[in-house]
Design a protein around this nucleic acid. Structure first.
Lengths: 219, 219
DNA sequence: TCGGTAAGTCACCAGGTGGTTAATTAGCGT
DNA sequence: ACGCTAATTAACCACCTGGTGACTTACCGA
């Protein structure tokens, strides 16, 4: 039962768990080896160094992420909900991005060019949505895209803030439902034309946590 | 020139720098001591342990943040721009939140109750804005608040994504200008009433990166 | 002046760290 | 059966980690 490819995979799987939990500096090679059920020496035999192993993890995760980004809906509200679901089902990806933000300095990041191209494609998709009238005209699409990513990624990147603000876990069913509804509403709202005319009529009231006492004051 | 209070402050200052850069696990007590120009032994003499020193940093930063949150504008667009400015001028605060998200597990966080109350006050401020008609009615304010924080904090929490998406640093003057304009627009847009009538008329075209070829297709 | 105490110093420790050397073993072609 | 190579292992290393025991020194009240 000697199979290098198989031990490589076992190491990669254990390393992903460990790196997502502790980051590059915090992860311990001994812990990865133990989790993988493999001699520690094999990490270095297969991948050369802790950092190269880490980069391989990032490369694989980026490929996964690329596949997702390309499959996402053209409609902004639906895309937001898809993004949200993806982050929830795979919070490891968000954590890896976060570790990368904190641990790598201002220098270039792993497979920088590939990822840049990926985002450029996503921006093009957003531009097509704008041309179809699903996004307000005249908007800076770069800023918009950044904000859409922000809104979906944030709760999983800062779960402690979600707990402090909403009192619930980001994975809590009720929280997820409210969030989805909000994101859907946000997508529709962004489609409103500059004049204020509603572009995509919808009579559903998003997140109607109706408080009885609220009255609109006169302006 | 023996002055315990002064050495405490020197240690705290050095520790803040070090913890923001490397996190709790990554920071080195020896490095903090060297940066503070103080014998390493004094860290433990003054604060007991690395972790207690770290908690003291978090407590102080939270107090700063509280003062800011209370001073923020009632008008959503302006508040967004203020938030953005605050994050840009003090990216350390964002990084500390990020380290906290990654390093502390699902358990309770430092001065949890105080921070919860702080957010509750901010939410109340948002509710007042809604009552004054500056925020769309029927919106889930918890989700909205979370998203507002997300939109302002995100670029400083994930600067590498800003680089990949926009090609610029989050601190870049041009990026900051575009972002401010976008945030201002977003604040106005949230004020639109549910019917689509423009609540706060404004003829300024936000972030008009005018592309000549865009035509609105018929629906 | 002097003694007590708090502030500051120095050398050290036990337990871990990524990474390596050298030996061992399984598998395969012949 | 055998020998060669690649996969696997045990033991090890130099270095570093947070934390400490025990010492010295400045300061202050009497």
């Amino acid at each position: 039962m000697r199979d290098l490819e198989r031990t490589r995979e076992k190491i990669l799987s254990a390393a992903r768990t460990e790196f997502c939990a502790k980051g590059l500096a915090g992860a311990r090679t001994a812990a990865i080896a133990r989790r993988a059920g493999v001699n520690k020496r094999m990490l270095f035999y297969c991948f050369g160094s802790k950092e190269e192993l880490y980069n391989e993890i990032l490369r694989r995760k980026s490929a996964e992420s690329a596949r997702f980004l390309e499959s996402v809906s053209d409609e902004v509200g639906a895309a937001l909900v898809q993004w949200d679901g993806n982050c929830r089902e795979d919070p490891d990806w968000v954590r890896l991005l976060e570790w990368e933000a904190l641990e790598s300095g201002a220098g270039p990041v792993v497979i920088e060019e590939t990822r840049r191209r990926l985002f450029k494609a996503a921006l093009a998709k957003l531009r097509r949505a704008q041309e179809k009238g699903n996004v307000s005209l005249g908007l800076d699409l770069t800023q918009l895209f950044l904000s859409l990513v922000a809104v979906t990624v944030f709760p999983y990147a800062f779960p402690q803030l979600v707990r402090l603000i909403s009192g619930k876990e980001p994975s809590d069913a009720d929280f997820v439902a409210r969030r989805s509804e909000f994101l859907h509403w946000l997508g529709e709202r962004l489609a409103l034309a500059e004049t204020g005319v509603q572009a995509a009529p919808s009579n559903r009231r998003p997140n109607a946590r109706v408080e009885s006492g609220i009255r609109r004051s006169a302006r």
